[in-house]
Design a protein around this nucleic acid. Structure first.
Lengths: 121, 121
DNA sequence: ATTGTTCATAACTATTTCGTTATAGAACTA
DNA sequence: TAGTTCTATAACGAAATAGTTATGAACAAT
């Protein structure tokens, strides 16, 4: 699996609110499939499918405890996503700077130093 | 659109390598649809569709320049994704700590201080 | 041995996604 | 006006996704 394919899988897995909720739950510790099913208005097989998506993306791994298959969260793909995002940090920080500049300008209009930044929102 | 739906759209948009490549291109400045189409073995309508996905996710916005519709990258959704990820930072950093500990242990096996950390990869 | 619990898989349906080609529209250019 | 360029949309097909119900397999408990 290429690095790009791993990102594909991670982003796709994270694009579903049920799966993000599952990760949120697992962030506070391991859980069985039934435990993960409980909070959702959804069948157990549906959750099993979501878990399979998360597993194929490497976002969770599973152990064995008798009949139970406890799931735990894995950080690696999240770190990969974070690394990918890092490339764009400047961009969104630039956006915020523009916003900050605009807000500052609105609060102190007396110092009208022709700051033509913040052209857009 | 709820915060969750915005994350859905952002993650789904980022799950496609063509769209990530488009963003990478836009990170170095605005570009027209045709310019964005060039690098890909794909029709112009296909790229237009990708752009529509990126636009609905708020990841790009478009201007006007005669017939051209220059696209520019927008940082906000990336910032949202980054914020979401932040919740899990401890988790992947913990993973790395385990990995670091394991690697350290492998390099200096003489100091066999029964460190049973790093059970998993 | 039988019964109950936990989980996965199969089979099916509906919807969405990603690409195609063909075509239409909008804005320049001659 | 007529032609060219740039982009969007319509119509279509293949494949993936997200859910369902029904069922089977693995293990535990009695």
């Amino acid at each position: 699996m290429t690095s790009s394919e791993r990102l594909d899988a991670a982003f796709a897995a994270l694009a579903d609110p049920t799966r993000r909720a599952i990760l949120a739950r697992l962030a506070s510790g391991e859980a069985s499939v039934l435990e993960l099913t409980k909070p959702f208005a959804m069948s157990q097989p549906a959750i099993s499918k979501h878990l399979k998506v998360l597993e194929r993306a490497g976002l969770i791994s599973r152990g064995r405890d008798a009949q139970r298959r406890p799931c735990r969260i894995e950080g690696k793909p999240l770190a990969d996503v974070s690394d990918w995002l890092e490339t764009y940090r400047q961009i969104w920080e630039a956006n915020f700077q523009r916003l900050d500049a605009l807000l500052e300008e609105m609060q102190t209009p007396e110092k009208k130093t022709t700051t033509r930044k913040g052209r857009r929102t």
